[in-house]
Amino acid sequence: MSTATATEATTFASALNTAMSDAMEEDDSVVVFGEDVGTLGGVFRITDGLTTRFGENRCFDTPLAESGIAGTAVGMAINGMRPVIEMQFDAFAYPALEQVFSHIAKMANRTRGRVRLPIVIRIPYGGGVGGVEHHCDSSEAYYAHTAGLKVFTPATVADAYLMLREAIDTEDPVVFFEPKKLYWSKAGEDLSALRQQYESSADTAGAESPRVGPTGNAKVVREGTDVSIISYGPSVSTVLKAAEAAAEDGISAEVLDLRSVVPFDEEALVSTVEKTGRAVVVAEAQGFVSVASEITARIQERCFHSLASPVLRVTGFDIPYPAPKLEEHHLPSVDRILDALDELQWED
């Protein structure tokens, strides 16, 4: 996987895989563990080949217990390691929540910054893959609500590589949400160019930099003038399609990809909404008390006088994730986003 070159299309999965192997190559203290990540290479094959290449001390299978995985990661991080742990599916990360909320998030604070836990918790998340019950949750709000955690979620192949490298290098714990519907998406990215881009960007920030940094670094992934559509992770590709369709109807939509929910790049948000005067927030998760709610509240607080219409949200319904045959009705779709755009009081 790590041998992919510019001539062949690079998948999201191989970008993640290469990010881990590059980090392991660079730093002996980076260790990868979880359920089935060793011999099998993970149920999504994201850790494929790491055990063969780096040995069983660097990438290994644990007993089947998520709290055990997260709690062991805490101890290993206390003792100088940089654990990258995999939760097999979004909903199977829940047994680890006590370790995540009570220790991983709080250890630096409790020890006055003396013990930092550079742990990355990788979670394949979201729907759109026909998964059954317990395999399609969008659980980012639980983690984003917890002070002390960073929450990253890449939407492109390039970000899969760049953001995972950064997550592993960050001293703070990062919950790294991988949209599973993007795993086999491809882009003409050259992994060695990405590697170079990452390595030369260490002290950079802002629009030109790929680094999320301490305050977030959202990207305008499509420029527009009439409305801002704010999104992240698995929804960004849907939003881009909707923006394309809207353009045919004469609406110029700007699309903002948050990239990280925490840190939250409020300035990028304010800047796009002040420019367009209208905003729609799109996310797969249930809308009630969600990341989309928070974004909407911030727009209201910061951009009230620039707004020509109420801020709308297009999110999943407030239901447990539906059965595979029904998920298309639940997930934010191009049509539903276009309907929201229609409601933005254009006539005024």
Binding site: S67, G68, G71, V74, G75, M76, I78, E98, S102, R110
Partner: peptide, 20 residues
């Protein structure tokens, strides 16, 4: 370790320190 209140969570930290 920092004295732990969430019961037995610290036992896993002990395992991690030993494993590292």
């Amino acid at each position: 370790g920092a004295m732990s209140t969430p019961l037995t969570t610290q036992l896993l930290h002990a395992v991690g320190v030993a494993h590292a």
